[in-house]
Design a protein around this nucleic acid. Structure first.
Lengths: 221, 221
DNA sequence: CTCAGAACCTAATGTTATTAGGTAAATTGT
DNA sequence: ACAATTTACCTAATAACATTAGGTTCTGAG
């Protein structure tokens, strides 16, 4: 018999226990004893696998996020047009969050605010995920689908900020509704932000940037 | 002599010390001893003023946020047109964050993820702050400045999400650049999301909702 | 001028994270 | 096959905090 020498197995078991407990009760209110008990070992044994509680926290979503990276290219492969890619991106991400709410909770609620997060591999992967959007916006602009004066970084902020906001609220409200509610309407709004200002009747190639027109005298900060 | 009986004075001094330390080193890494020492008293004395460390955390931004509420109406008073109000809102908020980065840091990085936050007075004030936007979008739609099919809640998510994203990054990057960089360009993008789809030459009343047109065969989540 | 209570103190107490030091099973080198 | 290591685990400290007990000094009202 003897269940020793699980190798990587135990590590996974600890991570799984921690993920559930952190997502359930929060990082602070979960004790190391809670986790080790749930994983079926002593506190000290946990420290043979992780440097500490925080190290464990950082380890939880590593696999999930790296899988996201791999899946993203896969999912967008073959889709034509910036808006189509954008839409796929949004639906795909929401689905992935819906499928792994615990990982999402750890990332959004406990990791993103953590001081050491920016030094993490998770962080650099998240950045890559978001950076993908820059290419899409560039493509859209180059193809004339999007406004010629579009700043891809600003566009990304708009897109990512909105997405993160939706996800965060959903997580805080304990996934009590569907992430896809209003998503069509949201995407429609986002899309029109990027579309070129249509110059009277045509639906491609607008000439003038600054064609705002509606607002009048605006005050400055 | 005798500096006893400060009454409310000491409470303020504790809050000020905690605000600085939390913003500097984070909530977890700041000890109650750090705070009480900085405020010039013993740990036990601190507990005569606050129920505990978390209670103290929640108390920090209370004044700031309630001042925001009061100031907002003041600032928007007399401004005509939904876009003008929206712009003022954005610039005003960024300015307030810039002026009180420590409070903003506490709210954005330590409070928003806190489980008890939703039961806080700060939370209900933040909600009121955001709810104000709903009125603006309603107004814009009613006046024909904005698209007739605009969902105010979705519009608010777009606006708030983007704003929060910009602010959060700025805070995480230690305020190393100006919050107002690209703000004009950002506002332009946001505005065009809300503007009615101009039906060939006119600038009011587009008939059909689903008038997306650009994207083709889209997959569904 | 007493007395309630405010504001503060030192010194416990309790809870957690983390470490020391050890044991037995498994693995490795010979 | 069998010493020597290494791995995976343990019990029992230790240490860092948050929080509480219980007391002292000052202040101000009656």
């Amino acid at each position: 018999m003897a269940n020793r020498n699980h190798k990587g197995n135990t590590r996974t078991r600890i991570i799984d226990s921690a993920r559930i407990l952190f997502a359930e009760q929060g990082y602070q209110k979960t004790t190391v004893m809670d986790i080790s008990r749930q994983a079926g070992l002593s506190e000290a044994a946990l420290y043979d696998h992780f440097h500490g509680k925080e190290d464990l926290l950082l380890a939880i979503p590593q696999l999930w996020v790296s899988e996201l990276i791999d899946d993203l290219e896969e999912q967008l492969f073959g889709i034509q047009g910036a808006y189509n890619k954008l839409r796929k991106y949004l639906w795909w991400y929401m689905r992935r969050v819906e499928q792994a709410p615990l990982d999402a909770k750890v990332v959004y609620l406990f990791l993103k605010t953590n001081a050491n997060f920016m030094a993490t591999e998770v962080y650099s992967n998240v950045k890559r995920l978001y950076a993908y959007l820059l290419d899409i916006f560039e493509e859209g602009r180059a193809a004339g689908e999007m406004r010629p004066d579009l700043n891809p970084y600003v566009a990304r902020d708009l897109f990512v900020g909105t997405m993160d906001h939706i996800v965060t609220r959903w997580l805080l409200k304990d996934q009590s509704y569907s992430l896809f509610e209003n998503l069509d309407s949201l995407f429609e709004l986002l899309s029109s932000a990027f579309r070129p200002a249509p110059a009277a009747g045509a639906d491609t190639e607008p000439a003038d940037p600054g064609a705002a027109g509606v607002e009048g005298a605006l005050d400055r900060g």
